[in-house]
Design a protein around this nucleic acid. Structure first.
Length: 587
RNA sequence: GCGCCCGUAGUUCAGUUGGAUAGAAUAUCGGUCUCCGACACCGAAGGUCACAGGUUCGACUCCUGUCGGGCGCGCCA
């Protein structure tokens, strides 16, 4: 509806331009807003105030002229000039009736649009290192990324969802070695587990599985395992990094490449399967799980480094290969290949982003935890250096969710194994509540996640409030049948002019906003707009429900009201679907 | 020290990209079931939009500075 009003204003301004009142070459940025106060009508436009200066007129006079040149439309009941020069639009009843029938005609498609024009867009999210189960911090990225993807799809984009699997590098070696040490312990070896190893119980599970399937095949005496390994961090000094590196080195030497890989894969695959299943149960699915190791084995990383070298943006220093990223807006240069010949994570990440853009996406979105924010300039620098357009990449930073339990902050550390997993959260609060809770806030907003509150099944959690509105409408249908009424949709559609109550006007007005909200939420990557909208719509429905009876004797009024709440039900269902939340028929 | 994010009701958060009297939820207090589900509704109270300047018709929103909180500043991933 906003678009239609905008079009009217635009036509009026064109007319004024032809009449010479306004300059021809000005392309006015017309914005139509919902009036905050009903006294100001349904919509408001501030264009007269914006153009007043260049038209050398006072805003109210200009507003007057714009109104005089507005084309006639059945949608607009009347217009008014208000305040410093706002043009207020009062919509006709017909205008809102059409929204109700739109929702019923379009069904699941109500709210969808084609503003994306089928453009290819890739969204990469979660991409947690496969070193353990997902925790509640990843949950926010998962819910956010999945919902942004849904929104973009609803706005007419062609969305490709991807998980970047960091299955290369030192963290993976630490994981493999951790599994092996636990395995050795199960074999009966005396093992002092390293401070820097992965402490979580799931490591024991993997080790037990390894032992069950292979017996003592990978067993080596502990004195050889710890042979020549620097001391672990302790009260009398020591170095936990050097300690674990020594253990990794011994693991490789004792096991040999093949056995080492078997142990390594045991950890990696078990964890990936777990993550995949966890996310699937959470309603989060991917088109592709992209392996970092593949970038090394297929030469992409070498190619990326070579491209930087060929373009003259790389140099050698102290035995390492550097990227002169400071030439492209980064605060300092970055290492691509270390002195020991090992390529950095950054090098493979350049290759990954290069690969993304080569795949031909019009736009690429990365959803990252806010702790990676310092990483954005260097990735963009790399894209710029190799001649790609860094503006095609949008990095959406999701702030941490700080957990509170019993009113106290919960400290989390992946390495120490002390964290609340996403699965635990889902088991306790349910998928619906978790999905809704996560996207209720802007992603850049620090979020206090009160576990006790989220776990409680009280209506403190707004998801129940919205779901209840949906269930309530379904319940009306059940009641209707019990009372022996039949719903005549055609009659209802023809009787929409019976919906004269203020509650009904408000509800229709509210419905008319839905397509605009979806569009705005998609463009701005702001799922919380949907959450707030749904709460508002549910509130209007509940208020209506409490104020008026739907199943009345007057058939026209009854059918019209049922048509209206049927449209509301469809809209609630569509909105919840976008958020990955179910719309139950009863609760 | 430098960089990014944040600061709005007791608390958790919105605020339509610079618009009209800053809004919800929750907590507190009061009211509403002979009635389609009270998992709901209605009302009251609650604010120096961290602070100080600046930009303009107009600032919670943009700019500068100060204060406070979070995160990041590796030849880690």
């Amino acid at each position: 509806m906003k678009h239609q009003i905008k079009s009217l204003v635009s036509q009026s301004i064109q007319a004024l331009q032809q009449a010479g009142t306004l300059d021809n070459h000005i392309e006015p940025n017309i914005k139509i807003e919902h009036a905050r106060d009903k006294k100001h009508g349904d919509y408001a436009c501030n264009i007269a105030m914006i153009l007043a200066k260049q038209a050398k007129k006072n805003p109210r006079e200009l507003a007057e002229e714009i109104i005089n040149h507005l084309p006639v439309s059945s949608l607009v009941e009347k217009t008014e000039i208000a305040g410093p020069g706002f043009i207020n639009f009062y919509m006709s009843a017909n205008a809102f009736h059409s929204v109700v029938t739109d929702a019923l005609d379009q069904k699941q498609a109500f709210g969808r649009s084609d503003i994306g024009k089928g453009k290819q867009i890739q969204v990469e999210f979660v991409s947690a290192n496969p070193t353990g189960p997902l925790h509640v911090g990843h949950g926010r990225g998962a819910a956010y990324g999945a919902t942004v993807s849904n929104l973009l799809e609803a706005a007419g984009y062609n969305v490709h969802r991807e998980y970047y699997v960091n299955d290369a590098g030192r963290q993976m070696d630490i994981l493999g070695t951790s599994v092996w040490l636990r395995y050795l312990d199960l074999c009966g070896e005396t093992i002092v587990f390293p401070k820097n190893g992965y402490q979580g119980d799931y490591i024991w599970d993997f080790a037990a599985n390894l032992h069950r399937e292979n017996g003592d095949k990978f067993r080596h005496p502990s004195d050889k395992v710890f042979n020549a390994v620097p001391a672990d961090e302790g009260e009398d000094g020591g170095d936990k990094e050097a300690h674990i590196d020594g253990l990794i080195k011994n693991a490789r030497a004792l096991l040999g490449e093949q056995d080492y890989n078997t142990v390594f894969e045991e950890g990696l695959n078990r964890i990936l399967d777990d993550i995949r299943q966890d996310l699937e149960e959470f309603g989060v699915t991917y088109d592709d799980w992209f392996s970092e190791r593949k970038l090394f084995t297929n030469g992409s990383v070498d190619k990326a480094i070579k491209r930087l070298q060929d373009a003259g943006h790389a140099y050698e220093q102290n035995g390492a290969t550097w990227f002169r990223s400071s030439d492209f807006g980064d605060e300092k240069d970055r290492v691509l290949v270390r002195e020991n010949g090992i390529k950095t994570y950054f090098a493979s990440d350049i290759a990954y982003h290069m690969d993304k853009l080569e795949r031909g996406y019009d736009r690429v979105i990365d959803v990252w935890g806010a702790d990676h924010h310092g990483y954005v300039p260097r990735v963009k620098a790399a894209l710029k250096a190799i001649g790609d357009d860094p503006d095609k990449l949008d990095v959406l930073l999701v702030q941490f969710a700080v957990l509170y339990r019993n009113g106290e902050k919960v400290q989390m550390s992946t390495r120490s194994g002390e964290f609340v997993t996403l699965r635990e959260l889902r088991d306790e609060v349910g998928n619906d509540a978790a999905r809704f809770f996560y996207v209720m806030h802007k992603c850049e907003q620090h979020m206090d996640f009160d576990l006790d509150l989220a776990k409680s099944r009280s209506n403190d959690n707004p998801v129940y409030y919205v779901q209840y509105a949906h269930a309530r409408i379904c319940s009306v249908w059940r009641q209707m049948q019990e009372k022996g009424f039949a719903f005549d949709e055609t009659a209802g559609r023809n009787a929409l002019d019976k919906l004269v109550e203020q509650h009904e006007q408000d509800l229709m007005n509210n419905l008319s906003r839905y397509p605009e909200v979806v569009e705005s939420a998609a463009i701005n990557h702001e799922p919380h707009q949907i959450a707030y909208y749904l709460r508002d719509l549910a509130n209007h429905l509940h208020t209506y429900y409490n104020a008026l009876q739907f199943l009345v004797d007057d058939a026209d009024v009854r059918n019209a009201r049922l048509v209206l709440i049927s449209a509301v039900r469809q809209t609630l269902q569509n909105g919840l679907e976008l958020l990955g939340v179910s719309a139950p028929e009863s609760m």
